[in-house]
């Protein structure tokens, strides 16, 4: 798979810090990026699992 086509999912367990935002910006560059906030209300885990399996890679931040 070419790098350009990579689909990446960013999951956040808490509000991302500036360092995390910077890293995510670099990781997402030229990629198809999605995100999921676990800290934002009651998470829909079915949606999260669907996203994990739809993306090539998942990063789950603190």
């Amino acid at each position: 798979m070419s790098d350009d086509a990579m689909k990446i999912l960013q999951v956040y367990r808490s509000e991302p810090t500036d360092d995390i935002k910077k890293l995510v910006e670099i990781l997402n560059r030229d990629r198809v990026a999605d995100e999921f906030k676990l800290y934002d209300g009651e998470p829909n885990y079915d949606t999260l699992v669907q996203k994990i399996f739809a993306n090539d890679k998942t990063v789950c931040w603190w």
Partner: peptide
């Protein structure tokens, strides 16, 4: 690796099993 997220671990596992994973 974190001692804080049992609810998420269980929620994700249940959802994955529901999805046949």
């Amino acid at each position: 690796t974190s001692p804080q997220h049992m609810r998420h671990i269980l929620g994700i596992t249940k959802a994955a099993v529901r999805a046949g994973k």
